[in-house]
Design a protein around this nucleic acid. Structure first.
Lengths: 111, 111
DNA sequence: ATTTTTCATCGTAATATTGCAATAAACAAT
DNA sequence: ATTGTTTATTGCAATATTACGATGAAAAAT
């Protein structure tokens, strides 16, 4: 079908999956790394850094924005994108808990 | 097109994106949580826990395995799946570094 | 006022994902 | 040997994603 049965999963499961899905493309990872590198946050030149057309980059940015991984501000003519600390922190919480649980159960592993 | 231009991104970017993509579906998050909950690792009953057909669950398990998020062992008739500590740790490393970098640059944010 | 710059959106094509029924494969139990 | 149990695979339909050219919109620069 190609449609995800979101209704049958918990809100938390859907939220985490949405964040992870947004991070599930190398161009979007590259965008995030670029936003970190460019401390100035004047981010109009992401297109020049990526091997993708402007329309494609804009689409990736929109997906990151929809998932609340980044925020965008209009700055006169250009737009300034920033990482959303709040979401990144929540992702970190999930991954750290996951890692802790895995290590706590390490003696119960069978493979 | 629907095809990702992986060749134009770094190995690291592709690897991280692959992990995140594998985690980018609520059913796969649910599977992971179930694997953690069931400490025994006798995991033949994932199908009963999820609102999905057996074929679909098997497909999700294969994707998690391809991304090396889980490992699977044949145990007589049934199969035992476990989380791959190594990969989970690497994901944690990436997220923790990301979070650190975001916080370090908090004063340079514009939005 | 016109042109340029910057970013978003629309339309479209190619490919990928999601989901399931049906079937196969591999072993266990009878 | 046959039957049941468990998981994988195949084939298919519906939907989503990825990518880009063309176009639009809004402010900046000339």
């Amino acid at each position: 079908m190609g449609i995800t049965k979101s209704d049958f999963f918990t809100e938390g499961q859907n939220k985490i999956a949405q964040w992870m899905k947004a991070l599930g493309h190398p161009a979007r990872i590259a965008i995030i790394q670029f936003l970190l590198e460019k401390k100035s946050c004047i981010c109009g030149d992401i297109v020049d850094e990526l091997p993708l057309a402007q329309a494609t980059v804009s689409q990736h940015l929109r997906e990151l924005k929809n998932a609340e991984i980044i925020k965008g501000n209009i700055e006169g003519n250009s737009i300034c994108y920033c990482l959303n600390i709040n979401t990144i922190s929540q992702i970190q919480l999930f991954i750290n808990q996951l890692n802790k649980d895995v290590f706590d159960n390490v003696e119960n592993k069978c493979c």
